[in-house]
């Protein structure tokens, strides 16, 4: 007989799977308080708060943090503009080449990051473009477009297409329809998309190493610490900051879009 309750084995396996996904991250928090700075000894010999103060005063952390914020902000704004435009076009009409365009939007995130990174690196080399904040932003905005696009296009699909026509029917011109009908209905999806794009950009390291040259974003700084550790608990403190910068946006994005059938993030 088929029953509506899961078997004990399945329940244990599912729960164990979820725990497997979450427990490792908790360790990051624990190790930020350890008194042992030379190894990853478990259990920590003692607990201390001093690493937060140490991290705060480390001069080498602030410039990468600032660069990451800068890059993520500008990339998000660019992705919001480009992603909204393309989703509006896709929602508005059927036209020749739709499939190809949606593939093109998806490609930067579907292909491994190393390819996008290497491709950009090749282009910079072929065209003699020097590394700058903008070379990083170029890559980030490219793979963030799809995040905004996915959120916006799902919302467009849910919106009854009739409401835009209804607005025009009642006498509104295109700009009034945009302001009074489209934007209020699209707003939370765009905000969610922007949040996710910011999180993705803030945390990105694979493409960035190819487009940053000698510059250091916060993830690159972390990567260097991982390869050649110095004060290990300080890395943990930074890891908590990076974690929060990606965790909070996805949580907010979830609450912004959970009422709909489309929920944010499914398309990373």
């Amino acid at each position: 007989m088929h029953s509506d309750r899961a078997s004990l084995g399945l329940r244990i396996a599912a729960l164990a799977g979820l725990l497997f996904l979450h427990l490792p991250i908790l360790l990051i928090f624990l190790y930020a308080f350890t008194t042992e700075e030379k190894s990853y000894q478990f259990p920590p010999p003692g607990l201390t708060l001093e690493w937060f103060a140490v991290a705060w005063h480390r001069a080498d952390i602030w410039p990468p943090l600032w660069l990451s914020v800068q890059v993520a902000t500008i990339a998000t704004v660019l992705a919001l503009i480009l992603g909204t435009l393309v989703s509006a076009a896709m929602a508005q009409s059927r036209f020749f080449g739709r499939e190809q365009i949606s593939l093109l939007i998806l490609l930067p995130i579907a292909l491994p990051g190393v390819i996008t990174g290497m491709a950009l690196r090749s282009a910079f080399s072929v065209m003699d473009i020097p590394y700058s904040v903008w070379t990083i932003i170029l890559g980030h905005a490219t793979f963030c477009i799809v995040i905004v696009y996915n959120n916006a296009v799902a919302r467009f699909r849910r919106l009854s297409g009739g409401i835009l026509e209804a607005s025009a029917d009642l006498g509104a011109n295109a700009f009034q329809t945009f302001r009074h009908v489209l934007l209020p209905n699209l707003g939370s999806a765009l905000l969610a998309g922007g949040m996710l794009a910011f999180a993705l950009s803030f945390d990105e390291v694979i493409v960035t190493t190819f487009t940053a040259g000698q510059q250091s974003t916060l993830p690159i700084w972390m990567l260097q610490e991982l390869v050649r550790p110095r004060q290990r608990p300080v890395t943990n403190v930074v890891a908590i900051v990076v974690f929060a910068a990606t965790f909070l946006p996805i949580l907010i994005a979830y609450y912004l879009t959970r009422s709909g059938s489309e929920t944010a993030g499914a398309g990373k």
């Binding site: 490792p24 991250i25 694979i206 990076v242």
Partner: peptide, 25 residues
């Protein structure tokens, strides 16, 4: 439960495993 680990920082996750798998970990 699935979405949060998906979106959490990639580097942080890798780093967490370095802590877990270390010989003294």
């Amino acid at each position: 439960g699935v979405m949060l680990p998906l979106w959490s920082s990639y580097l942080v996750k890798v780093y967490a495993w370095k802590l877990i798998l270390a010989k003294e970990g």
